[in-house]
Design a protein around this nucleic acid. Structure first.
Lengths: 220, 220
DNA sequence: AAAATATGAATGAAGG
DNA sequence: CCTTCATTCATATTTT
């Protein structure tokens, strides 16, 4: 089904520029009339409808706000992880992974994510929760529990902000994690995964370095 | 601005394996906390951020779905095609869209965004209004006035429905603008932006035609 | 080398 | 406002 001339709006560079400028200027949730006007102005640079403007601000704001949210959760996590950890670069250069290294040689997921498997469910970290009508066979059992489990609570005020959806969370995360250079890791590992040493934080792996590692795709 | 050393994440074989295993197990749309945990765990095998996990599931699910969809549509087509039909491949050659357009050739910003420049600000349209403590420098001038100006009033009863949140407005608008085929532009342009000819309404721009136009994104 | 494909990332659009 | 979906972009990888 050719979906017509893909009718989705796409801002022209000018429109985008203006919108961003406005956003920077403080416009966050324009009301109907504002939207009307903005639309009128922008329409000069290309086809555009009110809803486009509306959505643009909605999305932009949301995605941008998350970053804050995420930042908080992040800091919080770090706070609990701040404890200087030992050097942990030893872990893998991909190749060594196969070697008898210290790394658990790729354990089966039920070993890696015990919380995903009923048998191992006895720790706090619950997982599922919003497992609609999807598979979730393994996860069902967890249902009804407090999703965060232990550390979750730690974030009193933060938990609020954090609890939002994955998307938002991500949106926020992207910005900061990227900047910080390190990903949120350590503390989580502590509580949810005691199977491994928590030194995972400082890994360097960096799959992008050599062009070989990144494969591992479906290749099928 | 070249986007740095292409910092795109790439799952290590282990990470990928785990992710797939989880997916198979039924995990489809992990929420924030879940993502947190997954990320923490996977970070043991290499650098990874929350957004990576998020996107991974997002994409994986989407592509899965897409695959199914395609399959279905194909079957459907076959089903209907079993009966001798006329040739119908002609449909869609969205090529002609690339035709030489009448678009104004991208003038310098002060020409392009007159309304962003003080010199050109003298029209009525109010803008801000709920501009809390935000910037709004450019827009302030417009404050206090009746936003719509002329045609605004035209929509007597409509204004009611519209005036509620922007969302409502959009909800209403979307339907109509979409149907009418033209976006609410001309009239607006007239009053708010008389600097330009109003022909902006019928622009052809059509960013979607070639795969290049829509970019203008971060790519800085 | 060009074409096709796989996939991380981004974002417009909706539903609730 | 939050969450999710569909599309699309960009690029690395594989195919031809």
């Amino acid at each position: 089904m050719p979906q017509a001339p893909s009718t989705r709006w796409c801002p022209t560079p000018e429109q985008l520029m203006i919108l961003e400028e406005m956003y920077r200027s403080g416009v966050r949730t324009p009301n109907a009339s504002q939207i009307q006007q903005i639309t009128a102005h922008l329409s000069y640079y290309g086809k555009i409808e009110g809803k486009n403007v509306f959505y643009w601000f909605q999305n932009h704001k949301a995605r941008d706000r998350q970053k804050l949210r995420r930042r908080l959760s992040r800091q919080q996590m770090q706070a609990s992880c701040t404890t200087p950890q030992f050097p942990l670069h030893h872990l893998h250069n991909l190749e060594d992974i196969n070697a008898p290294s210290l790394i658990p040689p790729l354990s089966p997921s039920h070993l890696i994510f015990p919380h995903l498997y009923p048998q191992f469910l006895h720790q706090e970290g619950s997982f599922v929760e919003n497992s609609r009508d999807q598979g979730m066979d393994l996860l069902r059992n967890l249902e009804g529990r407090d999703c965060g489990g232990g550390d979750q609570e730690a974030s009193s005020s933060a938990s609020r902000l954090i609890r939002s959806g994955s998307y938002e969370w991500v949106a926020a995360t992207m910005k900061f994690e990227t900047n910080s250079g390190e990903s949120a890791t350590c503390c989580r590992s502590l509580k949810t995964l005691e199977l491994f040493p928590t030194k995972s934080t400082g890994l360097k792996d960096e799959c992008s370095t050599s062009k070989s590692s990144c494969t591992a795709s479906t290749n099928s």
